[in-house]
Design a protein around this nucleic acid. Structure first.
Lengths: 211, 211
DNA sequence: GTCTATAGGGGGATAGAC
DNA sequence: GTCTATCCCCCTATAGAC
């Protein structure tokens, strides 16, 4: 649509600068509270230029939203579908990867979840093959096998997945509350999350045998 | 500030109608996306009247936000501080109560958490004595005792609390995603949550012994 | 207390010069 | 491609009649 960088030195095309700024502001404030002027300011460019590259606030948002959700999901997809790693290993990998990821981008979970709730993000969930991705994954097959062998008590794989995501993601979403309760600063909070990389796999293992 | 109902038949004073409407709209869309016109419409009154009762959108929001957070917390406070019930019982009570509560009001968790993140909700967290409430609770004392007796492996009570809240609250926040993954309708989703009333206490018990 | 009408300002988008 | 200036709608809030 606009000039295509051939071998542009650093990814500092204007388009990329605007997207980077939009990511920051949208992730932090959400669609409704974001002012296009703030994005332009953050990007160090003029408001008119934003509309030149992306026709509207909404188009820009859709771009950012799609890339954010896609970026979040793709690692999950990779891990869940790896035939070689065990179920235990998958739990470890997901806990470890996402705790680091969200520590760096702490606004992403609540951003995604609240925007998806508000407007279903323009049918984003329908466009991404989430259901097949998860339901046909090696993860689900391994879970079924473990249930069949009596190694896992709770037969519903959705509970398994919910539990894993809950333990990994929720503390970040509730961070301000937990910092308030525990009187933690950011560093101490992150330290707690690092501990959870080791703890969550242990916990999940114990939970799933219980009945 | 306005007329005080003496023994008003049903709580259908205009003020209460506006607040009820504001709750619905704010909880669903959040502060920034809410239009005062929508609230007035939902309440079946005129826009001007809204400003007559509550001086501004922000004042109305603060009222709703405070009552929402307070309403959410007060049961937690009651349960956590009950000296008579055991730690196990507390877990049961919280899981059971909040699963029912959030099933009826599914927008509340993400509403509270995203508004608190956005603007700290006008220092709401500082005004409510959350920290003392939790840190001095019977819940925390019982947790410490259990750790001392070797009944609980993980000594940090924040992990315990995070885990409990995660398992209870997160599935609701991620509901659209989980419905997409599992292909569930609302009824089936609620069924899953009902199962968790029984499962979460079992899981928590198993987790906390694990190391 | 409740309404209609309108002021006032903010924010998304565009025209047009460079 | 990038800027300045500006349009215009929408939203909050208020004035004033009843």
């Amino acid at each position: 649509m606009v000039k295509k960088k051939e071998t542009k030195a650093l990814d500092t095309t204007t388009e990329e600068k605007i997207k980077a700024a939009a990511r920051v502001v949208f992730h932090k404030k959400g669609y409704a509270a974001t002012r296009t002027r703030d994005i332009a300011g953050e990007a160090g460019i003029n408001l008119a230029l934003l509309n030149y590259y992306f026709r509207s606030k909404e188009k820009l948002f859709e771009t950012i939203m799609f890339e954010t959700v896609f970026g979040f999901m793709q690692n999950m997809a990779l891990v869940l579908n790896d035939e070689k790693s065990s179920l235990e290993k998958k739990v470890e990998l997901i806990a470890s990867y996402y705790i680091d990821f969200i520590t760096k981008e702490p606004n992403i979970p609540i951003f995604m979840l609240s925007e998806i709730r508000n407007n279903n993000a323009g049918g984003l969930l329908e466009r991404l093959p989430i259901k097949q991705l998860v339901m046909n994954s090696a993860f689900f097959k391994q879970h079924q096998e473990a249930v069949a062998k009596g190694k896992i008590a709770e037969p519903n794989p959705l509970h398994f997945l919910m539990n894993l995501l809950s333990l990994v993601v929720f503390p970040f979403i509730a961070m301000p509350l937990l910092q308030g309760i525990g009187g933690l600063n950011e560093k101490q909070f992150n330290q707690l999350m690092q501990e959870r990389k080791r703890l969550i796999p242990v916990w999940i293992k114990a939970m799933m045998k219980a009945k």
